[in-house]
Design a protein around this nucleic acid. Structure first.
Lengths: 238, 238
DNA sequence: GGATGTGAAGTAGTTCACAGCC
DNA sequence: GGCTGTGAACTACTTCACATCC
């Protein structure tokens, strides 16, 4: 089952962040019944160069066939294994305002490799209701055992929530609150700040090279890639 | 008003993404009544090294005072100017499901430099209601003039929405749908995939250096920074 | 022929180390 | 003394170019 040509070398951070993108595209192609994809096609859809795709995938092992591209089933398997989708990771979501609900109801957020095991909220109106198949518990109830906590509470409440996570042994936090969290050594916090994405876009609109025509594109799309693709561009600067 | 020591050199992409983080921290300090901050403090709160902070800020001009750090008011002004907060940018949000609502109601998303000018949704239940001070319009009504569209519709609807944005002259799209968008040259798409953040975290949990203790931290927090800071770590790998 | 996989080159970003100024 | 600002060194990532294999 596990491909023998699998390699377990350490992947670079940018590569890891691109793997979920490749995975989604590959699954789209599988859904469309297509059997193979080459690095040029995958790169165009993912917004990166063909060379980058090949280097990223080569890091997982010898997945392709020279002259014929990649088998999408092989890619799905190997990318999934690299991301740890063969194992399950227990996740609790704390805070079920609009953002928390958007995440737990998303088709893509908690699907692969993650298993939702607990929901918590402070609002008495929300506690006791069922969201995404789980009953929401009071935020001051004991947290169930989990590996990851997703923090979607208001900024003012985030630090207290983080403290409680640490107490019960959750050492990986995904923090959506715009609030710096203080945690002890041994706990990892990853901040996701949705406003940054818009801020960066605004920066480029104001300071971009040129008045929003090709100039912006050069700033936004892949760095100085020649516009080989005639009618489309998928800019994913990150 | 505008500081004369302002510099307008081009900033690197990672620097631009860190400026909103510095801005938020500086504003927190202003709210606390503190007058100055040094690169070490700012770096610790932002999860980067002091050197990185100094290099980032030096890109905006000569903002600090040797021996005394930075005046928080100066930082707020200069970072705000760099990000274009002195100008306003018209933004429409399309799709008012949980994610769209989370964004327009967020305290930080549409505050600085952006002005919300239109909301659109397909659901007849939602159309006509008021959200964040604006009446939601039908998604097939003409879009108002804007510079940026934030796309929060389901993946299946995203391409049609993008096409309509391009038609009415909106050439900067912030796409939250897990869907590759095809747009003509001259339009910039920036994809935000919330699931990637969790995927990357899962990768590190499964493949991290060590069994989730200090090992994970080293993988997640600033790359190999010596643990000088005694009780806290703010990991922000990105 | 055609597309992968990869050494080599190039580019971008970070960190070091210290001169300069308060 | 302390902290900024920055050349220089270093590290990481991307891109080029091509040998390799189907």
């Amino acid at each position: 089952m596990t491909s023998s040509r699998l390699r377990r070398r350490k992947l670079s951070e940018p590569t890891i962040a691109r793997l979920p993108v490749y995975e989604r595209i590959v699954e789209e192609w599988i859904g469309l019944g297509r059997a193979r994809i080459d690095s040029g096609q995958l790169g165009e859809l993912a917004g990166v160069t063909a060379t980058t795709v090949r280097r990223d995938l080569a890091g997982l092992g010898t997945l392709g066939t020279r002259g014929a591209g990649y088998d999408v089933a092989v890619l799905q398997t190997c990318i999934g294994e690299a991301l740890g989708h063969d194992q399950h990771c227990d996740v609790v979501v704390i805070g079920l305002g609009n953002l928390g609900r958007a995440l737990v109801n998303s088709s893509s957020f908690l699907t692969r490799g993650a298993r939702l095991v607990g929901l918590y909220d402070a609002d008495p109106e929300v506690v006791g209701t069922e969201v995404a198949g789980l009953v929401v518990r009071r935020i001051d109830e004991p947290l169930v055992a989990a590996s990851v906590a997703v923090i979607c509470v208001p900024a003012a409440a985030a630090q207290a929530v983080a403290d409680r996570c640490v107490e019960v042994g959750i050492h990986a936090l995904l923090n959506f609150a715009p609030q710096v969290l203080t945690v002890p050594l041994g706990t990892a916090v990853h901040d996701v700040d949705l406003s940054i994405e818009l801020q960066v876009l605004l920066y480029h609109l104001h300071n971009g090279t040129g008045p929003l025509g090709g100039g912006l594109l050069h700033a936004l799309a892949r760095n100085g890639a020649p516009p080989t693709l005639p009618p489309m561009v998928e800019g994913s600067w990150h």
